[in-house]
Amino acid sequence: MEAFFVSAGIVALAEMGDKTQLLTLVLALRFRRPWPIVLGIFAATLINHTLAGAVGAWVTTQLGPQALRWALGLSFIAMAVWMLIPDKLDDDEVDKTPRFGVFGTTVVTFFLAEMGDKTQIATVMLAARYNPYWVVAGTTAGMLLADAPVVWLGERMTRLVPIRVVHRVSAAVFAALGLFALLG
Protein backbone atom coordinates (compact mmCIF):
# COMPACT_ATOMS: atom_id res chain seq x y z
CA MET A 1 0.00 0.00 0.00
CA GLU A 2 3.00 2.28 0.49
CA ALA A 3 3.54 2.31 -3.28
CA PHE A 4 -0.08 3.34 -3.85
CA PHE A 5 -0.06 6.21 -1.37
CA VAL A 6 3.40 7.50 -2.34
CA SER A 7 2.50 7.36 -6.04
CA ALA A 8 -0.88 9.03 -5.55
CA GLY A 9 0.62 11.81 -3.46
CA ILE A 10 3.54 12.50 -5.76
CA VAL A 11 1.42 12.60 -8.90
CA ALA A 12 -1.32 14.71 -7.29
CA LEU A 13 1.32 17.26 -6.28
CA ALA A 14 3.17 17.08 -9.61
CA GLU A 15 -0.09 17.60 -11.53
CA MET A 16 -0.85 20.95 -9.87
CA GLY A 17 -0.36 23.63 -12.50
CA ASP A 18 0.79 21.03 -15.01
CA LYS A 19 -0.01 21.20 -18.72
CA THR A 20 -2.54 18.37 -18.43
CA GLN A 21 -4.31 20.13 -15.56
CA LEU A 22 -4.56 23.23 -17.74
CA LEU A 23 -5.90 21.01 -20.52
CA THR A 24 -8.50 19.70 -18.05
CA LEU A 25 -9.60 23.26 -17.34
CA VAL A 26 -9.88 24.02 -21.07
CA LEU A 27 -11.92 20.86 -21.68
CA ALA A 28 -14.21 21.62 -18.72
CA LEU A 29 -14.81 25.19 -19.81
CA ARG A 30 -15.33 24.26 -23.44
CA PHE A 31 -17.59 21.20 -23.15
CA ARG A 32 -19.26 21.67 -19.74
CA ARG A 33 -19.90 17.91 -19.51
CA PRO A 34 -17.99 16.73 -16.43
CA TRP A 35 -18.57 12.97 -16.48
CA PRO A 36 -17.28 12.23 -20.00
CA ILE A 37 -14.26 14.44 -19.26
CA VAL A 38 -13.43 12.72 -15.96
CA LEU A 39 -13.92 9.27 -17.51
CA GLY A 40 -11.73 10.31 -20.46
CA ILE A 41 -9.00 11.50 -18.07
CA PHE A 42 -9.25 8.18 -16.20
CA ALA A 43 -8.99 6.12 -19.40
CA ALA A 44 -6.11 8.14 -20.87
CA THR A 45 -4.19 8.13 -17.59
CA LEU A 46 -4.70 4.41 -17.04
CA ILE A 47 -3.40 3.59 -20.53
CA ASN A 48 -0.52 6.07 -20.36
CA HIS A 49 0.61 5.15 -16.85
CA THR A 50 0.28 1.41 -17.51
CA LEU A 51 2.77 1.86 -20.34
CA ALA A 52 5.00 3.99 -18.08
CA GLY A 53 4.75 1.39 -15.31
CA ALA A 54 5.81 -1.34 -17.74
CA VAL A 55 8.83 0.74 -18.75
CA GLY A 56 9.72 1.27 -15.09
CA ALA A 57 9.45 -2.46 -14.36
CA TRP A 58 11.62 -3.22 -17.40
CA VAL A 59 14.27 -0.74 -16.24
CA THR A 60 14.69 -2.69 -13.00
CA THR A 61 15.60 -5.80 -15.02
CA GLN A 62 18.20 -3.92 -17.06
CA LEU A 63 20.08 -2.05 -14.33
CA GLY A 64 21.91 -3.44 -11.35
CA PRO A 65 20.87 -2.30 -7.88
CA GLN A 66 23.65 0.31 -7.60
CA ALA A 67 23.02 1.82 -11.05
CA LEU A 68 19.27 1.79 -10.42
CA ARG A 69 19.74 3.61 -7.10
CA TRP A 70 21.80 6.33 -8.79
CA ALA A 71 19.45 6.59 -11.77
CA LEU A 72 16.42 6.92 -9.51
CA GLY A 73 18.10 9.39 -7.16
CA LEU A 74 19.30 11.66 -9.96
CA SER A 75 15.95 11.36 -11.78
CA PHE A 76 14.03 12.46 -8.69
CA ILE A 77 16.37 15.42 -8.21
CA ALA A 78 15.94 16.36 -11.89
CA MET A 79 12.18 16.09 -11.37
CA ALA A 80 12.50 18.51 -8.41
CA VAL A 81 14.14 21.08 -10.68
CA TRP A 82 11.54 20.46 -13.41
CA MET A 83 8.73 21.09 -10.89
CA LEU A 84 9.97 24.66 -10.48
CA ILE A 85 9.31 25.37 -14.18
CA PRO A 86 5.56 25.96 -14.69
CA ASP A 87 3.85 24.48 -17.74
CA LYS A 88 1.86 26.41 -20.30
CA LEU A 89 -0.84 24.93 -22.47
CA ASP A 90 -0.22 25.16 -26.22
CA ASP A 91 -3.09 26.64 -28.21
CA ASP A 92 -3.27 23.57 -30.43
CA GLU A 93 -3.68 21.08 -27.54
CA VAL A 94 -7.46 20.90 -27.97
CA ASP A 95 -9.06 20.15 -31.31
CA LYS A 96 -11.57 22.81 -32.35
CA THR A 97 -14.18 20.24 -33.37
CA PRO A 98 -14.91 17.30 -31.07
CA ARG A 99 -14.75 14.68 -33.82
CA PHE A 100 -14.69 11.85 -31.25
CA GLY A 101 -17.22 13.34 -28.84
CA VAL A 102 -16.33 14.75 -25.44
CA PHE A 103 -15.04 11.42 -24.04
CA GLY A 104 -12.98 10.55 -27.12
CA THR A 105 -11.57 14.05 -27.46
CA THR A 106 -10.56 13.99 -23.79
CA VAL A 107 -8.90 10.56 -24.09
CA VAL A 108 -6.91 11.48 -27.20
CA THR A 109 -5.81 14.97 -26.14
CA PHE A 110 -5.07 13.98 -22.55
CA PHE A 111 -3.10 10.88 -23.60
CA LEU A 112 -1.00 12.89 -26.06
CA ALA A 113 -0.44 15.75 -23.61
CA GLU A 114 0.67 13.26 -20.94
CA MET A 115 3.39 11.75 -23.16
CA GLY A 116 6.77 12.72 -21.72
CA ASP A 117 5.07 14.77 -19.00
CA LYS A 118 6.31 15.05 -15.40
CA THR A 119 3.67 12.66 -14.10
CA GLN A 120 4.43 10.03 -16.74
CA ILE A 121 8.15 10.18 -15.98
CA ALA A 122 7.39 10.04 -12.25
CA THR A 123 5.36 6.89 -12.93
CA VAL A 124 8.33 5.29 -14.69
CA MET A 125 10.63 6.15 -11.78
CA LEU A 126 8.16 4.97 -9.14
CA ALA A 127 7.49 1.70 -11.00
CA ALA A 128 11.25 1.07 -11.05
CA ARG A 129 11.24 1.30 -7.25
CA TYR A 130 7.87 -0.17 -6.22
CA ASN A 131 5.35 -2.74 -7.45
CA PRO A 132 4.24 -1.39 -10.86
CA TYR A 133 0.59 -2.41 -10.35
CA TRP A 134 0.28 -0.39 -7.14
CA VAL A 135 2.17 2.49 -8.75
CA VAL A 136 -0.19 2.65 -11.75
CA ALA A 137 -3.21 2.48 -9.42
CA GLY A 138 -1.71 5.23 -7.26
CA THR A 139 -0.63 7.53 -10.08
CA THR A 140 -4.04 7.17 -11.75
CA ALA A 141 -5.75 8.01 -8.45
CA GLY A 142 -3.38 10.95 -7.94
CA MET A 143 -4.15 12.27 -11.41
CA LEU A 144 -7.89 12.09 -10.72
CA LEU A 145 -7.43 13.72 -7.30
CA ALA A 146 -5.75 16.68 -8.98
CA ASP A 147 -7.85 16.93 -12.15
CA ALA A 148 -11.42 15.89 -11.27
CA PRO A 149 -12.01 18.91 -8.99
CA VAL A 150 -10.87 21.16 -11.85
CA VAL A 151 -13.58 19.69 -14.06
CA TRP A 152 -16.31 20.58 -11.57
CA LEU A 153 -14.91 23.74 -10.03
CA GLY A 154 -13.22 25.06 -13.15
CA GLU A 155 -11.70 28.47 -12.97
CA ARG A 156 -12.47 28.93 -9.26
CA MET A 157 -9.86 26.25 -8.45
CA THR A 158 -7.12 28.15 -10.21
CA ARG A 159 -7.72 31.17 -7.98
CA LEU A 160 -7.85 29.16 -4.72
CA VAL A 161 -4.72 27.04 -5.16
CA PRO A 162 -1.39 28.88 -4.83
CA ILE A 163 0.34 27.03 -7.67
CA ARG A 164 3.77 28.52 -6.89
CA VAL A 165 3.66 27.07 -3.35
CA VAL A 166 2.44 23.70 -4.63
CA HIS A 167 5.32 23.60 -7.13
CA ARG A 168 7.84 24.36 -4.39
CA VAL A 169 6.42 21.71 -2.06
CA SER A 170 6.42 19.20 -4.93
CA ALA A 171 10.03 20.09 -5.77
CA ALA A 172 11.01 19.59 -2.12
CA VAL A 173 9.31 16.16 -2.04
CA PHE A 174 11.08 15.06 -5.23
CA ALA A 175 14.42 16.37 -3.94
CA ALA A 176 13.96 14.52 -0.65
CA LEU A 177 13.10 11.30 -2.49
CA GLY A 178 16.16 11.76 -4.70
CA LEU A 179 18.46 12.31 -1.73
CA PHE A 180 16.89 9.38 0.09
CA ALA A 181 17.51 7.13 -2.94
CA LEU A 182 21.11 8.33 -3.31
CA LEU A 183 21.94 8.03 0.37
CA GLY A 184 19.88 4.98 1.25
Rank of each mutant, 00 (worst) to 15 (best):
F4W: 12
F4S: 13
A12T: 04
E15P: 00
E15Y: 01
G17I: 01
G17C: 03
D18W: 01
T24K: 01
T24P: 03
L25Y: 00
V26M: 13
L27H: 02
L29P: 02
R30E: 04
F31H: 07
F31C: 06
F31Y: 13
R33P: 03
R33L: 10
P34Y: 03
P34M: 02
W35C: 09
L39S: 11
F42N: 08
A43P: 04
L46C: 11
I47Q: 06
I47N: 05
N48I: 01
N48D: 09
L51N: 04
G53T: 10
A57I: 07
V59I: 10
T60G: 10
T60N: 14
T60R: 14
T61A: 13
Q66K: 15
L68W: 03
L68F: 04
R69V: 09
A71K: 04
F76L: 09
F76H: 07
I77R: 15
A78P: 09
A80S: 12
L84C: 13
I85A: 14
K88D: 15
L89Q: 04
D92G: 06
D92A: 03
E93M: 06
G101Y: 05
T105R: 01
T106S: 03
T106C: 02
V108W: 06
V108F: 07
A113V: 08
A122S: 13
A122P: 08
T123Y: 04
T123H: 09
V124K: 04
V124E: 03
M125Y: 10
L126Q: 13
R129N: 11
R129M: 12
Y130A: 11
P132K: 09
A137N: 14
A137W: 13
T140W: 07
M143Y: 08
L144S: 05
V150I: 06
W152R: 10
L153A: 07
L160F: 04
V161R: 00
V166C: 08
H167G: 07
R168P: 09
V169S: 06
S170N: 12
A175Q: 11
A176L: 15
L179Y: 07
A181M: 06
G184M: 10
G184N: 10
